[in-house]
Each structure stands twice: as C-alpha cells, then as structure tokens.
Design a protein around this nucleic acid. Structure first.
Length: 427
DNA sequence: TGACGTCAAGATCCG
DNA sequence: CGGATCTTGACGTCA
C-alpha cells in the first residue's frame, strides 16, 4: 500500500459513458434523419446528460473524465453547420464552470477513423476538421490546455518511416489551438510506444502510454510499464498538466484488445505497485466505466472508511446475491467491523461473485429481495403482472434481462431510490 | 470485399 | 400495440 501513497493527487477516471446513472445517455442521429431542429434538440439533450455526468463525478469524487465525441452529432461534418458554441453558450459555460470549480480534468478522443497521416488528402482534411471540432468543444468549456485531445498516429501504408514523417508534417500544419491540446498514444497494431516517443521527440506532443496496447504491440526495446511511463513522463510539460496514461485489462477469451468487463483489483494493484509512487493520472478503459473508477479510487485510498464500502455494498448487493449467496453472506460478515476498511477483500469477493454464472435459483432469490421494496405499494394489476412474469421466468419463457427491465420500471415509477441507485439493473 | 469496434437509432418481429 | 430483438450506420485501414 505504501508504494503509491504519495500519489494521493493522482486522478483515476473513465471514458464517455456512465453505468447505472439515470439521465446520462448520449444520443446520436443518423445522416438521413437530420434537421436543424433535430440537431438542436439532441445537442441540448446531450449537454444536459453531460452536466448530469459531471454532477455524478463531482458527487463521487471522480476527477478525470473523457467526453464522448458524439456530444455534438456530426460535430465535424458540414451536415451540421450550427454555431452550437454560440447557441448553447449558456449551457456550455455552466458545465465548464462545474468542471473547473471542481478540478475535474476532461479529455476527448477522436475515433480510429480520424487519420492524420493518411495518404488521401480528403481523409487528412476531414481529420483536421475533426480535431478542430474537438478543440472547439473543449474551448467552449473554457478549460485549459491540460484538458487533452488524444490521437493515434494512424496507418502504416507499408512504410512506417514515411508514415511517421507524414504524421509529423501534418502535425506541424495544425493550428495552435489544436496543438496545445494534442497528445499521441501507442496503438495495438501499428505504432508502438517507441514509435510514438520518436514522433513526440520531433513534434513535442506529449505521449499517452497505453499498457494493453503496449502488451499487444511491443517495441523491440524491452522495457516494463514503469520504464516506459518514465520515458513518456519527459514528454509532458508544465502546461500539459499531470502525465496521463491509459490502463486496461484484456477480457479473457475475447479478441486481443477487448477491454475487460471490470478492472480486476489484484492485477490493478500489482500494476500500481510496479509503478512505485509515480504521480500520474490514469484513464481506465473498461466496460463497467464509473464502477471501476470508483473501485480503483477506493482501493488505493489508504485512509478509507467503512462507510465508503457500505455505500458500495448498497449498490452491488443484489448483483452479488444474484450470482452467489455465499459471497453475499461473506461480504455482510466482512462489513460488520466498523473500524476496519477491508477494501481488498471486499472487491475481491464482489469480482469473484460477478464472474460466476447466474443460476436460476439465486436469480429468483435476488428478484424476490428486490420485489420486496414495492410489494406493498404497487397496484393489484402490477402484482399480477409480476407473478405472471415470475412464473414465465421459471419456465424459461421470459429472459432474466426482460424481467429485470420490468422491475427497473417499477423502481422508477415508485421512485425507490435505493434500487434506482443500485447496479442491479445495469451490470 | 469484409472485418475491425462501438452503441444507439431504426427496423422488424413477436405475442 | 408495446416490448423484445435484430440490423444498420459512420468512419479508414488492412488482410
């Protein structure tokens, strides 16, 4: 634990979406369904969601967050010629103020289709437009240049050296508003961390080290995570803010590069220990998003309180019960001693439970626990609906997901806060 | 030419 | 008719 105690200012965050928090979804539009009104409507909707996400992050002490590129639909396309930064100035500055006032650091990450070193001029032009859009969005929040835009180098086109040079040439043509935010990241098949450091050496762009990409696409120079992170640290200058890395784990039995469902804490702690007390920000790339961010923050907190775990337990308990009543009881037992903070054991038991296959009996057990919350308040009609669904579920003609969706609807209708905040309906 | 990755919109199916 | 489930889109590179 001692190893990373000094990194107490370190921020851990997650990307784009929030799991299990109402009113935080980001909407998209299809090209053939676009009108000015529709665009405005969706932008406003998304900004409301973003504000709710920021509020959630503030409340949960999450200081690092990647904003989805979909926040402004077709933000870099001529299809959308709205001056959204003017139209929604009030909303944007309001969100920006919350971000700044709470020392949250945000970032954006254009997708794999933005390729600055492409052989096609049109692709490069579109990429620059996309970078302009991302820079403008961050600018509209009035957040400083430590709030970064992350980009991969692009394609190799049979000649890596030329591809690097094309990247550098095109980088040099970018406006200062983009350059001041642009950081580059190693990818999982073309440009390894050594390549990216070389490019950084010439362009001056800071480098994001991605551990999983490095694992899958190693440089011929053999260094460990810590050593690469140290090399990358030199590329971060004062105005760039704290050095940032991406951390993810491979989902077992899935294609290389698939992010894991959750961050497994023993592995994460090994990684952290191997970094000694290096002071960096860590962006997690993981399916359960904010859940893993909270978990990792809690597990590194050497002065944590039992209340934190109790709060987490309230949100996880029915998901655990659904998988393993044995772990459910073990955790209850674990949380009895109010003077301790058994955070490692706690999350280990949760991870172990959630990895188990759901058996029908335990699923029903969890369902009945959840049903207990509105058993007394719901209408007779709903009671009958519930009974019918339960018997259908038992006969395998209703899926667990559908059943849970119905329960979620009831939870929202009767505003059962304990259940609405639970992860039971989202993992 | 299709896989790659992502996730919600949109389309279609089902009871 | 509402809800569940399947398909598509939007993008560029590479096998």
């Amino acid at each position: 634990m001692e190893a990373y105690e000094k990194g107490v200012n370190m921020s851990i965050g997650y990307a784009c979406l929030v799991v299990g928090v109402p009113n935080t979804s980001i909407k998209r539009l299809k090209k053939d369904n676009i009108s000015e009104d529709k665009l405005k409507e969706v932008i406003l909707f998304n900004l409301h969601s973003l504000e709710n996400i920021i509020d959630y992050n503030i409340k949960n002490n999450i200081k690092l967050f990647r904003i989805s590129s979909d926040i402004i639909p077709f933000g870099s396309s001529p299809i959308n010629n709205l001056k959204w930064w003017d139209i929604f100035e009030k909303e944007l500055s309001n969100i920006g103020k919350k971000i700044r006032d709470n020392s949250i650091r945000v970032s954006m990450h254009p997708g794999q289709y933005s390729v600055l070193n492409s052989l096609k001029k049109e692709v490069v032009d579109n990429t620059i437009k996309d970078l302009e859009y991302h820079a403008r969005f961050l600018e509209s929040l009035k957040v400083d240049e430590s709030n970064k835009i992350i980009l991969h180098v692009g394609g190799v086109y049979n000649d890596k050296q030329e591809a690097k040079e094309r990247f550098i040439n095109n980088y040099n043509k970018l406006s200062f508003d983009i350059k001041k935010r642009l950081v580059i990241e190693n990818d999982d098949r073309s440009f390894n961390i050594k390549d990216v450091l070389e490019i950084s050496n010439i362009t001056g762009a800071p480098v994001i080290y991605d551990n999983l990409h490095n694992f899958l696409n190693k440089s011929t120079d053999v260094f460990n995570d810590y050593e690469w992170i140290m090399k990358c640290s030199k590329t971060w200058k004062e105005n760039d803010g704290k050095q940032k890395i991406h951390y993810s784990q491979q989902e077992e039995n899935k294609k290389n590069g698939s992010h894991s469902k959750t961050i497994y804490t023993p592995k994460f702690l090994d990684f952290m220990t191997s970094l000694y007390n290096v002071d960096i920000d860590i962006m997690l790339e993981v399916k359960d998003k904010n859940l893993s961010a909270t978990k990792c923050i809690n597990i590194l907190n050497s002065s944590g309180k039992i209340e934190t775990l109790e709060k987490e337990w309230a949100r996880y308990k029915y998901s655990v019960l659904e998988k393993s009543s044995s772990n459910y009881h073990k955790i209850r037992q674990l949380l009895k001693d109010k003077d301790k903070y058994p955070v490692k054991k706690f999350y280990l038991l949760i991870e172990e439970a959630l990895d188990k296959k759901t058996r029908k009996g335990s699923a029903i057990n969890a369902i009945e626990h959840v049903y207990g919350y509105f058993k007394k308040v719901i209408l007779e009609k709903e009671k009958q609906q519930y009974m019918l669904k339960l018997s259908k579920f038992k006969k395998d003609i209703l899926s667990l997901d559908s059943f849970k969706k119905y329960l979620n609807k009831l939870a929202i209708k009767y505003n059962v806060k304990y259940l609405i905040e639970s992860y039971y309906f989202s993992i």
